[in-house]
Simulated assay, not measured.
Amino acid sequence: MCGCGEGGEAAGYGPKTRFEDGLARTVDWYLSNRRWVEGVITGEYLEYCRRVYG
């Protein structure tokens, strides 16, 4: 299993955002973009992807 433990820290990698803060920001984004979420739920977004990407 791979994680962000000692190897990541030794290479200079690490989280820029605390998990709790990132989760709160993610929830806020979804709440602020309800139209996009609704499009995903109804299949409108899937149809868009099919049209654009074939």
Rank of each mutant, 00 (worst) to 15 (best):
V37D: 00
D28V: 04
E47T: 05
Y30A: 02
E38R: 11
R34E: 02
E47M: 13
C2N: 11
P15Y: 00
C4Y: 10
E9N: 15
G5W: 08
V40E: 02
T42D: 04
R25F: 08
G8T: 07
R35T: 10
E6G: 09
R34F: 09
G22N: 01
R34V: 08
N33Q: 07
Y30W: 06
E6H: 10
N33F: 05
E20Y: 01
G43V: 08
G7I: 15
R25I: 11
E20L: 05
Y30C: 05
G8S: 11
A10G: 13
M1T: 13
T17N: 03
V27D: 12
N33I: 02
N33P: 09
L23E: 04
T26Q: 15
P15V: 03
E47D: 12
E6N: 08
T17W: 09
G3Y: 04
G39P: 00
T17I: 13
E20I: 12
Y45Q: 06
G43A: 08
K16Y: 11
N33E: 09
T26G: 09
R34D: 01
C49R: 11
G12C: 03
G39C: 11
C4P: 12
K16L: 05
Y30G: 04
C2P: 13
A24N: 04
R34T: 01
F19N: 03
D21E: 15
E38T: 00
C4A: 06
E44V: 09
G43E: 03
Y30R: 10
D28R: 06
R18V: 13
S32P: 00
A10T: 10
V40P: 00
E20M: 02
T17A: 05
A11D: 01
E44Q: 11
D28L: 01
R25Q: 06
Y30L: 04
L31N: 04
T26D: 15
R35W: 05
R18P: 12
S32N: 11
G39A: 14
M1Q: 15
C4F: 13
E6V: 15
L23I: 13
A24W: 03
K16C: 09
R18E: 08
A10C: 12
I41N: 03
D28N: 07
P15T: 02
G8F: 11
V40Q: 02
W36V: 11
K16D: 15
G5D: 13
E47Y: 12
N33C: 04
T26W: 14
I41T: 07
D28W: 02
C2K: 08
G12E: 02
W29V: 10
E9K: 14
G3V: 01
C4K: 04
L46V: 14
L23D: 03
V37F: 01
T17L: 09
D21P: 04
G12H: 02
G3D: 07
S32D: 10
G39V: 03
N33H: 13
N33T: 06
D28T: 13
F19S: 03
E38L: 07
M1Y: 14
E9R: 13
G39L: 05
Y13N: 05
G39D: 06
L23M: 09
V37P: 00
E20P: 00
G7N: 14
G3N: 10
Y30F: 05
